[in-house]
Amino acid sequence: MATREIAGTTVEVNDEGYLTNPDQWNEEIAKVIAREEGIGELTEGHWKVVKFLRDDFKEKGVMPTIRRVKNAGGIPTKDLYELFPEGPLKKSSKVAGLQKPASCI
């Protein structure tokens, strides 16, 4: 398992840069990953998505889909695409310190 230092914390990452242990995540790490992914500064809207993804994953043990982000998280699909363009679920999951989503929805 590769490790890298993000925002002063050493974390375990896979070969695509996703954190492999969500417990090693913190908000400073999220900010750095967001910049690397071309998302820029994280706004309230971004944090709402990140918080939902983390809470839902913790509760269910599976990565939420875009549909679940919409129906259970109350975040419209349009907003999700605007906040995290060019790969909304992949990028938001990466920022949230979670695994790469394996779903097609």
Binding site: I66, Y81, P85, E86, G87, P88, L89, K90, C104, I105
Partner: peptide
Amino acid sequence: IMANGARMEG
């Protein structure tokens, strides 16, 4: 599914 999957990949 293919159209949605495409959008998910940008």
